[in-house]
Amino acid sequence: EPLWIRPDAPSRCTWQLGRPASESPHHHTAPAKSPKILPDILKKIGDTPMVRINKIGKKFGLKCELLAKCEFFNAGGSVKDRISLRMIEDAERDGTLKPGDTIIEPTSGNTGIGLALAAAVRGYRCIIVMPEKMSSEKVDVLRALGAEIVRTPTNARFDSPESHVGVAWRLKNEIPNSHILDQYRNASNPLAHYDTTADEILQQCDGKLDMLVASVGTGGTITGIARKLKEKCPGCRIIGVDPEGSILAEPEELNQTEQTTYEVEGIGYDFIPTVLDRTVVDKWFKSNDEEAFTFARMLIAQEGLLCGGSAGSTVAVAVKAAQELQEGQRCVVILPDSVRNYMTKFLSDRWMLQKGFLKEEDLTEKKPWWWHLRVQELGLSAPLTVLPTITCGHTIEILREKGFDQAPVVDEAGVILGMVTLGNMLSSLLAGKVQPSDQVGKVIYKQFKQIRLTDTLGRLSHILEMDHFALVVHEQIQYHSTGKSSQRQMVFGVVTAIDLLNFVAAQERDQK
């Protein structure tokens, strides 16, 4: 057995438009009618409502009807409940999964919650491996369901041993009777949507819809739904939504950006999952974080739909894509998950301010006199920076000697690579993860907040409520011999709460 199987392995699926269902090699399930009293909570997966979006479509000038398939009504709160249950049931049916076995899954959280929910009911041990950027709410729900959680670096490539995929496979090879159901490759993922989600949409719309818009992560949702719609409703256009920084969209030119990270969760990847059939997507749109969270908040405030950030991405694209539809036509959007997962993220004004998705003037509360002053007023001194090749031991000596707790790590040209902190280095040394002679590049981390000289002290204040420091950066445009230009970030300084307090105190003292 291989040590790991690539999540982007070539698909062996034989589905073709027009091929009889009787030739399918898979076990198919028909939607079942729910009894009045459910035998367990797993029976509350599927049969989610279709809700008309009344205000947002009109606000953006849509002539067509805009409908939302509300997947956050599933038992675990997301569309991923469907595939989690289906993968477990299919693994039980073919004898792969037996009582007492362990389920391991690399996930952005929602599939993990679905699997942990099913594992709690069915009696399996469950280990979820997820990147650090995923919300604390997801972690809390997983723990409450009895799952064990392993976190991995957000910026690790999918084929790196440190990625959530790599760590999951390492655990599988170490733990007896453990299984990775593997949402990236498992046919049960798109089949769950082909058999149930798509049929529900067709039934709820009486077979009449002209466009379907869905955000894409593993691709199982859009693949399964689109294949069924292509068979039953061939005139329906399928629109895929991919965040900026991901590479799922086609044509490839759409993916060209210097951005590699994004805040919206559960969609987009740096590889093409095996289950994603991009041939059934008629057109791709890219979405960005700001519009995703703005539209998610709009869905909550104006439509009462308590959905997550990827739902915002989907609707932001839908109001663009559906401009081509006329009166009497219908566009369906998939709202994948609930706001429950993001209470401390985009639902929080403070978080939105820190990330730059909300401006101070958007909030009406009274601010102190210094709130709208610029960061450049602080008069920061030149920063202490270190090269990635310097040793951890030497870096600790320098920081202690100069009285700093942290320093930016830059390359020879001064471009920011990340940050090192005294606390992080000492804990890594004590844990045996690094040696004093190791290069400081081994303990770089990139989960820090950046701020510009033109940003306000109010925004800085919000950042420092949650973080010990902020890195002050400025952009530099560099022209190359080819005539092309590129933008790079340079370090201007490091600012802490002490710097802000000293500035405010000094100004008030001078005024007296």
Rank of each mutant, 00 (worst) to 15 (best):
Q329P: 01
I396V: 10
K442M: 12
Q487M: 12
V504Y: 12
A322Y: 03
F346V: 03
D270Y: 05
E265P: 01
K286S: 03
R400W: 10
S313A: 10
Y342N: 05
Q376A: 01
N288C: 12
N341T: 01
L254S: 05
Q376F: 07
G418L: 01
E291S: 14
G403E: 07
G308W: 03
K449D: 10
I396D: 10
T279M: 11
Q406Y: 07
I238Y: 04
E401F: 11
V375S: 08
I451V: 14
V332N: 04
Q376V: 06
T385D: 01
E475W: 14
S427Q: 03
K355W: 09
K402G: 13
L460M: 10
I390S: 09
G356P: 01
E290S: 14
V504S: 07
A318C: 09
Q323F: 12
T314Y: 05
K366P: 15
Y269K: 01
K446F: 12
L399R: 04
V409Q: 07
S246V: 01
R297T: 01
S437N: 15
T391Q: 01
E397I: 01
L430G: 01
Q507G: 14
T279R: 11
A322V: 01
G356W: 05
Q435A: 14
A497R: 15
I477S: 06
I334W: 01
V440I: 12
A497H: 07
Y269P: 04
R488I: 15
E412A: 13
T456G: 11
K283R: 04
A249C: 01
L429W: 08
L399A: 14
G268V: 01
K355R: 12
H462I: 14
I444L: 10
T389R: 14
R297M: 04
G245C: 12
M419I: 10
L276W: 05
V386T: 15
T496P: 13
K484V: 12
S313H: 04
Q439V: 10
Q439I: 08
R452C: 13
T274N: 06
A296L: 04
V264I: 14
Q256G: 11
Q259S: 04
L429C: 14
H474Y: 12
H474N: 01
V494Y: 01
G308K: 01
G266S: 01
I416K: 01
A431N: 15
Q487P: 09
V375N: 13
E397P: 01
V410M: 11
Y262F: 11
Q478V: 06
I398E: 12
L500C: 13
K359D: 03
E401W: 01
F357E: 04
E291V: 14
L417G: 12
F295H: 04
K442L: 13
M419L: 12
A316K: 11
I238L: 04
F293N: 01
L429G: 10
F492K: 15
P436W: 09
L387P: 14
I444S: 13
E412V: 10
K402M: 11
A311R: 01
E263W: 08
H468W: 05
E303L: 08
S381V: 08
P388I: 01
F285M: 01
S486H: 08
E360G: 12
V339Y: 08
L460D: 01
R488G: 12
P243W: 03
E327W: 01
F503G: 01
C392L: 11
F357N: 04
A322T: 05
C392V: 12
I416Y: 14
I498M: 13
P368M: 06
L384T: 09
V319G: 05
E365L: 08
Y269Q: 03
T257D: 10
L325P: 01
A407S: 14
F293I: 01
Q507A: 14
T482F: 12
W284N: 01
G240L: 01
M419Q: 09
L325G: 06
F492N: 15
E397W: 09
Q256L: 11
A431S: 05
G418T: 08
Y269F: 01
A470D: 01
E412T: 12
I451T: 07
S287H: 09
D362S: 01
K367H: 01
W351G: 04
L430E: 13
Q447S: 08
N288A: 12
D282P: 14
R330Y: 08
I451E: 01
I267A: 04
A413I: 09
V415D: 13
Q406R: 05
D282L: 07
M298C: 12
G393H: 15
L363Q: 07
A292N: 01
L422N: 09
Y445V: 11
M425S: 05
G240D: 09
L335K: 01
L380R: 12
R297V: 04
K283C: 13
E291A: 15
A249F: 04
V375L: 10
V472G: 15
Q323Y: 10
R509M: 11
R374C: 10
R374V: 07
I300H: 07
E508M: 01
I416F: 07
D349K: 08
T274M: 08
Q256V: 13
K286F: 01
K484A: 01
H480W: 06
D277Y: 01
S381Y: 10
G432S: 08
P383M: 13
W351F: 01
F295I: 07
A311E: 01
E244M: 01
G441Y: 14
V443A: 15
Q487T: 13
S287C: 12
A292H: 01
N255W: 06
N424T: 05
Q329C: 11
Q478C: 13
A505W: 03
Q487K: 15
V315I: 08
Q511L: 09
D455F: 05
T421K: 09
E290C: 15
S427P: 12
L426I: 08
K512S: 13
K367I: 11
K286Y: 04
D499R: 03
R452I: 06
S427E: 01
Q302W: 15
K345V: 05
D349A: 07
V410R: 12
T314W: 03
L363N: 07
V472Q: 13
G414P: 01
V494I: 15
H468G: 01
G423A: 07
L417T: 15
K433R: 10
D455R: 01
V491N: 15
C331S: 03
E412Y: 09
D277R: 01
L429H: 15
E377C: 06
P436G: 11
T496K: 06
L471R: 01
L457T: 01
M490A: 12
L358T: 05
I477F: 11
S310T: 12
L384G: 08
G414E: 14
V434Y: 15
R278C: 04
L353V: 13
Q302S: 12
K446A: 01
T395S: 11
K367M: 11
S428L: 10
